[in-house]
Design a protein around this nucleic acid. Structure first.
Lengths: 106, 106
DNA sequence: TTGACATGTTATGTTTTTATAACATAATTG
DNA sequence: CAATTATGTTATAAAAACATAACATGTCAA
């Protein structure tokens, strides 16, 4: 499925909260690099771009260039594979039930 | 569901390949700390224990003490929540189909 | 074609993480 | 109870990641 090196890139990419926020912003709609930068006023533009590069190298975002713009899309597949690695087809149902039970109790 | 701080602990915990391997070993059966140490002959015992501490603080493993032994169990819930964060109920099906398609093509 | 806009590259200081060593406690077993 | 086994704590050097600055390229529109 994914090599160890690829996997390492994915998890290291997810380890920074800024990068997770970027993925949140991309969850529903793709965004240009510039748009994303305005969403993080506290961060330097270069910092956001460095994060985007890490996400792209991890294949967590897919990039399309259009003229001078760059559109960033979320790629959900690596995230699904995280789930599948530790929660097999059988455990998936049990985990789902456990989750609901726990949420209902809270 | 999970606070930002908790989330950060979870993703940082998953960022190290040794810790992911530990979770792999715990996927099917719980193991004592000592057993886990023998599975990583290249690593110092202290290193493995430090990793276990990080995993426990992230709630990715649940610990039960029995006498002088310590049994480490995998907790799948935080991993399920990673999936749910970026792959909503609707996208889940589409992602599943996309994954099968891609796997079949390879 | 020139100025403005959107994006990209390289280098660097600061902070975290990783791996280890040295030391310490606590529960079994002979 | 003494030796052994299993686990836990604190401190530290080396490696990696995060944020930034300075510099550079490519595209569009007047």
């Amino acid at each position: 499925m994914s090599s160890d090196v690829e996997n390492d890139r994915i998890f290291k990419a997810l380890a920074a909260s800024t990068r997770r926020s970027i993925l949140d912003l991309l969850k529903d709609d793709p965004q240009t690099t510039g748009e994303l930068c305005t969403r993080f006023p506290a961060l330097d533009r270069c910092t956001v771009m460095q994060h985007l590069k890490v996400l792209e190298e991890a294949d967590l975002i897919i990039v399309r260039r259009e003229g001078r713009e760059r559109w960033n899309h979320l790629n959900p597949l690596p995230i699904k594979h995280i789930h599948d690695r530790w929660i097999g087809p059988y455990a998936a149902y049990a985990t789902e039930v456990l989750d609901r039970l726990k949420t209902d109790l809270e």
